[in-house]
Design a protein around this nucleic acid. Structure first.
Lengths: 224, 224
DNA sequence: ACCTGAACACCGTTCAAGT
DNA sequence: ACCTGAACACCGTTCAAGT
């Protein structure tokens, strides 16, 4: 797609695509998706808002490029002596941590829109699926399930973060008030929700995420 | 929160919250999140944009209310003579279909922000988890995994739909071009992605979604 | 040749003015 | 008492004008 846009030959100290993306990541990290505007971005880069369009097509492209930059760093995992299951866990946790540090990538990330980095994640996980001897007809659906789960948690993470910062509350306060609300539900209609209200309050997102991965891995083993 | 906003006593044929939400759902269905603006909405309702704020706090609230309306219809599933597994499948598929018909609810839906309808889904699935005799310490994480997966797929669905309509292409064309791109990847670095390129092209989102649910259910059984 | 930044066509939201 | 719709403070994006 961007074959003809080779800017490397220039020697002016002017704008570069990499510089723009890096600054965008900083703005996204500190202010979420709303924190990134072409006006603040161009201000940081000491230029006019129009100048950015020489390097980037539009805002969607800019966010996609920022995602790529973050995930490509995440995916650089050396193949150590790990079992297929351990490798899947490692990759999944790396993705979780990246989406936790940069909540804005959650909704922007998709593995089917042709983002090259997500294809690399797909390859990485897919190879473990093969190593786990999943029959060939089941491979696609199995990889789909894992990736959907991983990206899904990232998306939920983003919603929660946004919700929390909109209310100006921290995570603990939010969980506490939600827990209280759940405990106050009628016990005839909501026995289950009431029963886990206190457990929910103290849950660990990261640990629960991994339990979900393990559940899917256990399901894969069980199906073979 | 909204205890004092009881509008039922009025008898004028003026605006109602329900009417606003219904119109909003129509606009969202036909034009996505961008299709809903206060100007077009108020136009449809034959009023000014300001009038809506008497019934709804802001756009976020409006979308949340639209979600609630859609999901509450979805969740009205009669308890038939189904096994716990079958019930989970039924609920999950109902959610999938709702998110497929209304792609905009995917990103807006979250079960931790106190949306009452999602709590009902949580209860419904949680009761099956209890019936499956998941040990009490594992219940929260198990329900989390299922709900995260369900909502995650919905979120991905939304991204894909948005992507497709932005390009003005249909699903088949998108999958075909993606499949071609995957087949053209270097075989040394991307053996797995290449191997499933053709399978991906013909995959059925709904069937794959269900396979993921079954994988998690199998994992639950395996863990007991 | 490259950058600038005013201008355009939109948003969500508010609130004085009408009826 | 309730609704209206101009006005405000923003957006992303474009493009004539500058250097």
């Amino acid at each position: 797609m961007s074959k003809s846009l080779n800017n490397r030959v220039r020697r002016t100290e002017s704008l570069s695509r990499e510089q723009i993306v890096d600054t965008a990541i900083h703005l996204l990290d500190s202010g979420g998706e709303d924190g990134l505007t072409f006006r603040t971005l161009s201000e940081r880069l000491a230029t006019g808002p129009g100048a950015i369009y020489a390097y980037i097509a539009n805002k969607h492209d800019l966010i996609a490029a920022a995602c790529e930059a973050v995930i490509s760093r995440t995916v650089e995992i050396k193949a150590r002596d790990l079992s297929p299951e351990e490798t899947v866990r490692t990759v999944a946790l790396a993705m979780f941590d990246a989406m936790d540090t940069h909540p804005w990538i959650g909704p922007a990330l998709t593995w089917s829109a042709g983002q090259l980095t997500m294809v690399r994640v797909l390859e990485l996980i897919g190879q473990q699926i093969v190593a786990l001897e999943v029959p060939i007809q089941a491979r696609w659906a199995t990889v789909s399930a894992l990736l959907n789960y991983i990206l899904g948690v990232g998306g939920q993470n983003a919603v929660n973060t946004k919700f929390a910062q909109k209310l100006g509350a921290n995570r603990e306060d939010l969980l506490a008030s939600l827990s209280t609300a759940w405990s106050a539900l009628p016990s005839d209609a909501y026995p289950f929700v009431r029963s886990i209200a206190s457990e929910m309050r103290m849950h660990d997102d990261r640990a629960d995420f991994l339990i979900g991965i393990d559940l899917i891995l256990a399901g894969i083993k069980n199906n073979n």
